[in-house]
């Protein structure tokens, strides 16, 4: 396993690009849906892998991105260039602001608090029925569009949008990890009190990682919402947060590639399991359990 990091990164993205170029449209849809999950896994990696903070709010941030962008596009069609960055920035800032008071919570309590963020989002969408369409959901009328290029839709373009997000996220992740700030985050993760006594403003550096994660999830949500053409609360439910956490833990928080590969491979495998009929849920659970145990035994060796 002594492949240098840059080589494995290049291999990973080259393989993905190959998949994108040579997969027929309808099969690419599944790949795109898995990529949406993978971007969320990467987003969570900012909070958990770098800052050591668990978050179950990723689904809410992705949902905010999707709903925000779709609703704003209905008001200002064609202004994607303005709307998408605003929604991503807004969600990122909100995530950062939310994380500040939660910073001092221990793991269990932080899990509960962020889980509540997810549930509050879902219930707000249900309650604000006149705006969000409630549980019936919203049909997405306007695509993402760039002046000069036109609508950004379709399987291939969306694939490369997701791939771009993944590449950008990976770049930021690696740069941050190896920077002074990244080392401050690592200090918070490994020993909070030592970090504080070194003069690190824990709430500030951790809100940065939380904010970046929130923004990345929101960006994934923006692309996903316009691509699917229909958004409803069930797509941004707690289950998405749990899945992201699951795959990140399988791959190991702090690693860049392993969680992404785990998400893409296991999601594809779980899609094939539908041939099992009623035994599907059981085998899903066994598969995930086996992946978790395999990761554990690999680390133990």
């Amino acid at each position: 396993m002594a492949v240098p990091r840059n080589v494995s990164l290049a291999l990973f993205f080259a393989a993905l690009t190959g998949v994108g170029l040579f997969t027929p449209g309808f099969a690419l849809l599944a790949v795109n849906q898995h990529l949406f999950l993978a971007v969320n896994v990467l987003a969570l990696n900012f909070c958990l892998g770098l800052g050591g903070q668990i978050s179950l709010a990723q689904a809410a941030f992705a949902g905010l991105g999707a709903y925000g962008s779709v609703l704003l596009h209905a008001l200002f069609p064609g202004a994607s260039l303005l709307i998408a960055p605003c929604v991503v920035l807004g969600t990122g800032l909100l995530a950062a602001a939310l994380s500040r008071p939660m910073e001092r919570l221990g793991e269990g309590f932080l899990a509960m608090a962020t889980l509540c963020v997810s549930l509050v989002f879902t219930n707000l969408v249900l309650t604000l029925e006149s705006v969000t369409g409630g549980s019936a959901g919203l049909m997405v009328e306007r695509p993402l569009a760039l002046p000069g290029i036109g609508a950004l839709g379709g399987d291939k373009l969306t694939f490369f949008l997701f791939l771009g997000l993944l590449a950008l996220g990976s770049y930021v992740f690696l740069t941050l990890r190896d920077s002074r700030l990244g080392r401050a985050l690592a200090a918070c993760r490994d020993d909070g009190q030592a970090a504080s006594s070194l003069g690190i403003d824990r709430a500030a550096v951790r809100s940065l990682s939380f904010g970046l994660g929130g923004g990345l999830s929101a960006a994934a949500g923006v692309v996903h919402g316009h691509y699917t053409g229909f958004i409803s609360p069930e797509q941004f439910h707690l289950e998405l947060s749990l899945k992201a956490l699951l795959f990140l833990v399988i791959g190991g928080p702090g690693n860049l590639l392993r969680p992404l590969v785990a998400a893409l491979v296991l999601e594809t495998a779980m899609g094939w399991l539908s041939v099992l009929g009623d035994a599907r849920t059981l085998v899903n659970g066994l598969l995930l359990g086996a992946a978790l145990l395999a990761g554990y035994w690999r680390i133990k060796k």
Partner: peptide, 19 residues
């Protein structure tokens, strides 16, 4: 294992029980 891995194992177990 890390507490998170243990936590996620109970998530997998909940799926197995449902199955």
């Amino acid at each position: 294992a890390s507490p998170l891995r243990q936590l996620m194992l109970t998530v997998a177990a909940s799926l197995v029980f449902q199955g």
